[in-house]
Amino acid sequence: MSHQPFETWLLSDEELNPQQKLSLDEHLQTCEECQKLSNALHQVNVVITTSHEPTPQPGFTQRWHKRLLVHRHQEQQRRMWFITLGLFGIAGFIISALLILNHQSINWVYELSNFVANFSLAAARVNQFWSILQSMIKALPILLPIMILFGVGLLSAMTVLIITWFSSLIRLNKPIKEGVSVR
């Protein structure tokens, strides 16, 4: 026996017209297989519609806020790792490129010791610069009044010099009066 289109009508969500409904009812009275399918679908529908709505445990939002903080911390750590690995990768690439460029005359021990020495020197210089900067910052309260005094003195002296220079220029450019003989 053919179960079409009745099986499709039973399984689809489409609304049937009165003619189709009648036709389906007639078929269900004679076809045991479609009757079983119809009953099963009805039972499944009952089970679904009578189920309770699952609800989360109280405090869901608070737990979400905590989880968000953890998530952000993890993201930050991941980003730091990414940056660190990226920098190491770039450094590795540069070193490899340099090694490849100099591969013929390369002396591994010499290059390595040279690199370590240069790195140590650079680190020492940075450290030295930082010490000087720190000393200057520490000495700033003592040096500041002296520097201000020196600055004010220098400014005053320069002002006097500029005024003298301008007045000299004005005097020299003055026109000579008529009737005055020049010796």
């Binding site: 989360p56 869901f60 979400w64």
Partner: peptide
Amino acid sequence: LVDSYQRPVYSLCYRMLGNSRDAEDAAQ
């Protein structure tokens, strides 16, 4: 927004995953 929509989201996760532990984790 989490407070307003926790029920439908949790319910969907529960129906999909079948237990409260996974549903809570997936909803969060």
